[in-house]
Structures are given as C-alpha cells and as structure tokens.
Design a protein around this nucleic acid. Structure first.
Lengths: 190, 190
DNA sequence: CCTACCGATCGGTAGG
DNA sequence: CCTACCGATCGGTAGG
C-alpha cells in the first residue's frame, strides 16, 4: 500500500521536526517540505497535525510497555529486575531517539480527551518501576527510600540519553550499563 | 520605578506561561491578558517576545553560577564537594521552578547569536561538575566512570524536581538530600 | 497530490 | 497604555 508507506514517511519526518523545533514551532508547511509535497496534500494521509503527535506519543508508550512486560512477568529478584527494566527502557529510547524526545517533551500538546489516556499510561508505566522498588525495599535489598522519588530519579537519569547521540554520541550498551550501575549501586543496601 | 516593577510582573507571568504551554504556543495576547493589558502595550516594557525568553534563560544561568561558585572555590573533598554542588543546583531549581522549566526546555527558541552564548554557559556549568568528578576518580574516591556520562546522569536526575511540585509536591530538603545520596552512593568506590 | 483559498491568529508598529 | 492596524503565517478545506 503506497499510502501507508507515505504515512510512515510523514510520521518519521514529523518526529524529527517536532523534536528539533518543538511541536508548536513546526508548521504543516515545514512538514510538507520535508516530505516533498504541498501542505494541503498531507491531509490525504493524516487527519490533523495533532493526530500525528498523538500517534507518535502513543506508539512510544506502547513500545515502552512491550519492552518492559516480559521483565515484569519474570521471576527475577528486585535488583536484577530493576536492571532488566532499565535496560528495556534504555533500548526503547536509543532505538527511537527522535520519537522519544517527542514523547518526553511534546506530549502536553496532545488535546482532550486523549491527553488523559496518555497521562494514565505514563502513570501505569511509572508504577511498574515503583513496584520493583517497593519489592526491593521490602526485602531490604534496597535502602528505605521513597519509591516515587526514586522512580522519577531513575527515569530522569536515563531519559537524557536520547539527546546525547546528537550533541555527544550515541551511548554504547556499555555506557548504558554504567548509568544503570550508578543508579542501582546508589539504591542497594550495603 | 513603576516601569521596572511592571517588567518584572511581565517576566514572571511569561515564566509561568512559557512553562505551562511552551514558548511557541504562548502568544503575546496570552501574556498581555495575564498581566491585564493589551498586547501592544507590552512593547513599552519589552523589546520582543524572544527578549523575554532570553532574559529568563540567562538569569537562570546566572543563578546557577552564583550558587555553585562558592562550592567550586571551597577546599572540600570531592565527595563533599559533589554533594554541595548538587545541593546548590537543587536550591536554584526549587527556588525558581517555572524559570527552571523554561531554562531547561525552551532555550532552543533563543535565536542567533545569543543561543551560542547560552550553549557556552551551559557547557561551562557542566564542566564544573565534570571537574569534581574527575578529581574524585583521580583520588579513587569515585569509581572509574565516564565523567561526561556521569555529569549528564547527575544533572538529569536532579532536573526533574522542578515539575514534581505541581504534580506531586514540592520536594523537601530531606528528599533532595535523598536523591543526592542515591547518586553519590552510586558513584563512590566501596 | 495540486491549485486556490479560507478565517483566525501571529508578533509587532504607528500614532496618540 | 490604548486603538487601529500591518503583512505574514497558521491549520485546514473545496474541488478537481
């Protein structure tokens, strides 16, 4: 289907532009130029500007869930489970740097009622990390920290990596392990 | 001076709006409404929309430097110096949550040539953290981690706190200590 | 997928 | 600080 391929192309270009300039500062003319057509022609493939944003953000949310689900289902001990969850999170970000940036910074431009679903999904995702942390604290493997605080700290400490691949370089698997180690070592009891 | 006070009022409202909606999605009419005047009247106090953004971002950069300078001048050992630097960083963020959000997310809308100065300042600031880390690694107090990687991880892990005060609650001094402890414990040798 | 075009809104200026 | 207004650009539609 030519139309589907074209839509993917539009979505990919939108990811790059939304990431570079922000959603609001990207015009449909910019996007049209990027894929080599007139702005009006975009509407044969997409419903609206916001629809593209929505699809990018929800697809990313889906990717995060798909990656972390087997980790949550596993019988790993908290420390190893946390490391696996962080590795899953990392892998999704580095595989979709542009989309991750949009997911992390442009979601607030999603309108009603979709924004509510988005916030719910994010909360559900964060809850998974919190669950792992709570289990580890319960078993005295992790120090007695605030799980909500630690979840935000953990995720924020990993979420910057999407941007380094342009200003610095794409983090290697080793480097991602190193970041995870810093955080995990900081959490475990000694 | 009435005009100066009015300008501060405009800047404060701009911080809030830029943070909530983003710079591009905030119109001068929105801002004018927020301070109770017509859009055209704003230009008696400010030069342009971008000038406000610039002032917010550069004032924040200045605040970060002012806070960290005494720490850098001090003769503290790396571990204590890092904790002090993080505390300084935290204190600036929590004292200026809206401006911090703008500083962290909207700076890319600063135009040429100012954007170059901004990037230089940010790099200079990050270099201070890197210097502390390098000293600690040298003395074998910190593990042999990549200082650039660790700097980004550290700063990102603290930078999310500006947003928690709306969705969650303002982090207490204890909680900021807790975040710092997680990160420092993750970095030190054992 | 294009031409032609819409009403709305944008940042900003003139003149008082 | 306001009224009146500018040219440019916005997201999107009609009709082919």
């Amino acid at each position: 289907m030519k139309t589907v391929a074209r839509k993917d192309q539009i979505r990919l270009k939108a990811q790059t532009l939304f990431r570079e300039r922000g959603y609001s500062a990207t015009s449909m003319r910019d996007l049209a130029d990027g894929v080599g057509m007139e702005a009006a022609s975009l509407y044969n493939h997409i419903g609206s500007k916001e629809e593209i944003l929505r699809e990018i953000c929800f697809a990313m949310a889906e990717s995060f869930f798909v990656a972390i689900e087997p980790v949550m289902q596993s019988a790993l001990a908290p420390k190893e489970k946390l490391r696996a969850a962080m590795a899953a999170h990392f892998s999704v970000i580095t595989a979709n740097a542009d989309a991750s940036a949009v997911f992390l910074h442009e979601w607030r431009h999603i309108g009603e009622p979709y924004i509510n679903d988005f916030k719910l999904m994010r909360r559900r995702y964060e809850r998974m990390f919190r669950t792992i942390l709570e289990a580890g604290i319960e078993q005295n493997i992790f120090r007695n920290i605030d799980p909500v605080l630690a979840t935000h700290t953990l995720l924020s400490a990993t979420n910057w990596t999407y941007e380094s691949y342009k200003t610095y370089r794409k983090p290697t698997a080793d480097e991602m392990q190193e970041i995870a180690t810093i955080l995990i070592e900081g959490i475990i009891t000694r």
